[in-house]
């Protein structure tokens, strides 16, 4: 028997009152009512869709008729291991890694300044300046780089004004990352990704740095550490969980994006584009499903390594 049944107050009257008593005596009923709708939406509709996708990736496509064969097979995954497909995976993962490292380097000073020195309205300004691009205008922000990187655009204009055009040309003549122009090269794609996901790196690093007490830094310098040593031995290790948290976003978002490389970049595909092309024009849903398992698996491995490194303990 539940001790709550031994109520000292009289039972409430009316339908609502009796319902309230019921919820109080049996919290499980209230919990079920609360959980039902969201659990149905996320647990059944969404997770169900993901599982359906997983199942699709074990189907294959009949090469002659172009119809989907609904029989369990690893054929589609074996096709994923073709050199041309592995290239796509490798290209995307390398891009994600480069974007992640660069955005951590650019984000750190912003986060450090905002956490340590900014006060009052300056701090609010920093916060809003990072929040706004994080939540909004994804497409507009990709578009902005189409304007900037266009041949007749602001970047080439500025570069030629200061006489650095040969530098850009040298950069574009590099193998692999170069191309006919910045808007059609990996450098362009990289810049867009960096720009898009930078805010996702700043906020977690700032949150981690806010928790470092100033007295700890004072203690470090009192004990004779130079600023560089304090950074390496105190600040960086304490900021690392924030960097890892931010890198989860930058990495995952780069892995799955298919719009940015389509608008700014070379014609070679990234994983997201491969998924889109296979399900759309090619009509090869099993292949698209198998391709979309790649970012899920890569992220799972990434999270597992992050956990093994103990990066979550401090979060």
């Amino acid at each position: 028997m539940n001790t709550r049944d031994a109520s000292v107050t009289p039972a409430r009257g009316g339908v609502w009152g009796r319902l309230s008593d019921l919820f109080y005596r049996r919290p499980a009923i209230l919990l079920a009512l609360l959980l039902g709708p969201p659990l149905f939406w996320i647990g059944v509709v969404y997770v169900g869709s993901l599982l359906a996708l997983l199942v699709q990736s074990f189907y294959s496509i009949d090469e002659f008729s172009g119809r989907i064969v609904r029989e369990f097979t690893f054929k589609t995954y074996l096709e994923l291991l073709r050199p041309s497909n592995l290239d796509i995976v490798l290209r995307t993962v390398l891009m994600a890694a480069t974007v992640t490292v660069t955005s951590a380097i650019i984000a750190f000073p912003i986060a450090y300044y905002a956490a340590r020195y900014a006060r009052g309205w300056v701090k609010a300004l920093f916060f809003i300046a990072v929040m706004l691009p994080l939540w909004s205008s994804y497409l507009v922000r990709v578009y902005a780089w189409k304007l900037i990187l266009a041949n007749e655009g602001v970047l080439n204009w500025g570069v030629s004004k200061v006489g650095l055009s040969p530098l850009i040309e040298a950069l574009l003549s590099l193998p692999v990352i170069g191309g006919p122009s910045l808007a059609f090269s990996y450098i362009g794609t990289f810049l867009v990704f960096l720009y898009l996901w930078l805010p996702f790196m700043i906020l977690p690093i700032q949150a981690a740095l806010e928790r470092v007490p100033v007295s700890m830094l004072d203690a470090s310098s009192d004990l004779g550490a130079r600023p560089g040593q304090t950074f390496r031995k105190i600040i960086f290790p304490l900021a690392l969980p924030g960097i890892v948290a931010g890198s989860i976003f930058t990495f995952s978002l780069t892995l799955g994006d298919y719009i940015a490389p389509q608008i700014v970049g070379s014609s070679r595909l990234f994983i997201g584009q491969a998924v889109y092309v296979h399900q759309g024009t090619a009509g090869n849903l099993p292949m698209a499903a198998a391709f979309s398992m790649v970012p899920i698996v890569v992220m799972a491995i990434y999270l597992w390594i992050a956990k093994r490194m103990g990066a979550f303990n401090a979060l």
């Binding site: 989860i248 995952s252 994006d257 994983i271």
Partner: peptide, 15 residues
């Protein structure tokens, strides 16, 4: 939001 949008998109589409 943790999974890339393209995964959510294609999962819903195939469902």
């Amino acid at each position: 939001i943790a999974l890339p949008g393209v995964v959510t998109g294609i999962a819903l589409r195939s469902a």
